[in-house]
Design a protein around this nucleic acid. Structure first.
Length: 648
DNA sequence: CCAGTATCCCTTTTT
DNA sequence: GGGATACTGG
């Protein structure tokens, strides 16, 4: 390699990277596909590549690093800065959604929106759909009509997979085929209303960016020439629209690097397809392909097991991992008498391992679905073991947080019908009808949120309305700081909170926490965008996260949220046929394969010790079946690769 | 037309 | 067991 002769590089890339990694880092021009197995130093490679480009003289702002979460990109950029110097900190990075948001906010008028549009999360989208459904009078007496969440799934699936509503209904929801016309009608109304009220949902961020780049050659040129080097992480979890956005951005210069692992693709439900990886060399025929197959994470016995999980896959994946790490213990499959015994087993093992000087944050418990950890959480609380839960229900989705945010959102986007509706519904004696009427009156005035001050209301609600008016007179964003506004809203909201919820003390703490988040922002716009696009993804209902000040906590996480992370010891609970894989997936081979990849992702998180547990006396109410077999993915593993235990 | 109570349904994963 | 809807009284 020529680097040797170039003293202008301060980092010794040759020494710190293995051969394929080095090649990935130094191949800067032209299209590049990296197939990176679990634990093969993918993050390291991306980090060094950022440093290498900057060191080579590429201005930081000309590099774009698209990742799956903002946390991932921040971490890589920080590491690169430590490796080289602060120039790396200016590399723009984030998710596709946040990137789309920043471009679209700039060119909102070109896609028929006003600046300052709001971003709908799925709760918001659901509210809008249910408002529209009521308006349309789609009879709710009709039992066969899909619920709002289902409707949203149908819409989102269609958009993400570039299908029509009809395709999705026929293929995935054949029992709703009779209602096809009404569903399509609702979909169109939903689309129109988003434009009218200046809303973009998650899918819109991608579709409108795609549309803008496709139809507007001028903008495409501006945007794509801003970023001369593109890097995309977790490429196996991008969907068709995201892949096309990548092509459009890279079209001019083709300096595009994508990194992924086809055997870790776990977002098909969102339209992602590992086939994007296979397609990449077809779109860019001169693409260089590099495989990273040496695993630096796990000991050999763990790798033996994970390799057997993926060997049983229907489709053969592109690589096989090896490691130089020897020793280590064989993974354990523990069958427990019932759910309680499973929780006890995990708690006892954790205490044992923790005693041997492993810190708690080096241990994780992983599961298929958020609610699977409920039983364990109770036991952990009893034992006083601090933990943090990632994934599942989120802090921002809870009603009280959405209530407070609604007041902020209308300051920024006065057309935000969903938030006004929510605000009015909170007033005493105001129900759906009145809330709707109040919103209509307000929007007719067309004077932004100040229209509220001159709103006429019935005597029954005049008192609560005047409190609301007073609040909005005070919280002028041109005068108050964001956290002052937050405090004022919470003062206003507290009596409402106390009358609506029995558990208000707990919820009150969440609101305090929200204000501390606000203190980090200096404007409403970026605060709201982050809350929608990068919400804190830990759930707040565990009191430990507030009371416990240290950071040595056990991690509980869904497998999806554990992507890309690693721990010394990993427990995979509910490794039970019917839970993981879920019953839902067993009948469909594509979905079953995705569950297998999910199990693979879970198992490959472990560095030294790996435990699977399952209770064997579970009655499933939906299917009216007893569940007692271990997950088929673990059951298929040859006996020599796993140690089976029975815990009474 | 609001708000409280009864009843039925389905129950994944996330930006 | 929880959320969404249906029904009923005020």
């Amino acid at each position: 390699m020529q680097i040797k002769n170039k003293p202008l590089y301060s980092i010794n890339y040759e020494k710190e990277l293995n051969t394929p990694q080095l090649e990935a880092v130094t191949s800067t021009e032209g299209p590049l596909l990296i197939i990176a197995g679990a634990g093969s130093g993918k993050t390291r490679t991306l980090t060094y590549r950022v440093a290498y480009l900057v060191e080579k003289g590429v201005p930081a702002h000309a590099i774009l690093l698209l990742t799956f979460t903002r946390k991932a990109s921040q971490e890589m950029i920080q590491r690169a800065s430590r490796l080289l110097d602060n120039r790396c900190a200016n590399v723009p990075g984030g998710t596709f959604h946040s990137f789309a948001n920043s471009v679209l906010q700039k060119y909102a008028d070109r896609i028929g929106f006003k600046k300052g549009f709001s971003i709908l999360d799925h709760t918001d989208s659901g509210s809008l759909i249910s408002i529209l459904r009521k308006e349309k009078g789609v009879s709710s007496k009709n039992r066969s009509f899909p619920r709002k969440q289902t409707l949203l799934n149908i819409f989102s699936r269609a958009v993400n997979k570039s299908l029509t509503i009809e395709d999705v209904v026929i293929d995935n929801y054949p029992h709703f085929a009779i209602e096809l016309d009404a569903i399509e009608d609702l979909f169109n109304a939903y689309k129109r209303h988003k434009v009218k009220h200046n809303f973009l949902d998650y899918d819109d961020l991608l579709t409108y960016l795609h549309m803008l780049l496709t139809n507007d050659a001028e903008i495409r040129k501006i945007v794509s020439s801003n970023y001369f080097y593109l890097m995309v992480d977790e490429y196996q979890d991008t969907n068709k629209i995201q892949a096309e956005i990548v092509y459009l951005l890279a079209g001019e210069h083709t300096n595009i690097m994508v990194v992924g692992d086809d055997s870790q693709s776990i977002y098909a439900f969102r339209g992602a397809s590992f086939k994007n990886i296979m397609t990449f060399p077809k779109i860019f025929p001169d693409a260089k392909i590099i495989k990273l197959e040496e695993n630096y994470r796990s000991v050999q016995p763990i790798l033996n097991l994970t390799n057997s999980i993926i060997d049983n896959a229907e489709c053969k994946y592109t690589k096989r991992l090896f490691t130089k790490k020897t020793g280590g213990m064989k993974p354990v499959l523990a069958c427990t008498k019932n759910e309680y015994a499973q929780s006890r087993f995990v708690v006892e093992k954790i205490k044992e391992i923790h005693g041997e000087t492993t810190s708690l944050k080096e241990i994780a418990v992983l599961f298929r679905a958020g609610f699977h950890s409920f039983g364990l959480e109770i036991e952990l609380a009893k034992e006083g073991i601090p933990f943090i839960k990632v994934g599942g229900f989120k802090f921002l989705e809870s009603a009280h947080i959405k209530d407070v945010l609604a007041h902020l959102r209308v300051l920024h986007n006065p057309d935000d019908r969903i938030s006004w509706y929510r605000i009015f519904l909170l007033l005493d004696k105001v129900g759906p009808k009145t809330a709707q009427k109040l919103y209509n009156d307000l929007s007719k005035k067309n004077t932004g949120y100040s229209g509220l001050f001159t709103l006429k209301v019935k005597p029954a609600i005049s008192q609560s309305m005047s409190r609301l008016k007073k609040l909005f007179e005070y919280i002028d964003p041109t005068i108050c700081s964001l956290s002052q506004i937050g405090d004022a809203i919470i003062d206003y909201y507290t009596p409402i909170l106390e009358s609506n919820y029995d558990d208000h003390p707990k919820r009150s703490k969440d609101l305090e926490h929200l204000v501390t988040i606000m203190e980090r922002y200096d404007n409403i716009e970026s605060f709201l965008a982050d809350m929608a696009l990068e919400p804190p993804n830990t759930s707040m209902d565990d009191s430990f996260s507030i009371n416990y000040s240290g950071d040595d906590r056990l991690v509980l996480s869904t497998v999806h949220s554990a992507k890309g992370l690693e721990w010394k010891t990993v427990f995979v609970i509910w490794a039970l046929d019917g839970r993981f894989p879920s019953l839902h997936a067993i009948k469909n081979s594509e979905e079953l394969e995705e569950e297998r990849r999910l199990m693979y992702v879970a198992a490959t998180r472990a560095k030294e010790r790996l435990f699977f547990t399952y209770p064997n006396d579970v009655y499933d109410k939906i299917s009216k079946m007893m569940l007692y077999s271990p997950s088929c993915f673990i059951d298929m593993v040859p006996g020599s690769n796993i140690e089976k235990q029975y815990i009474d």
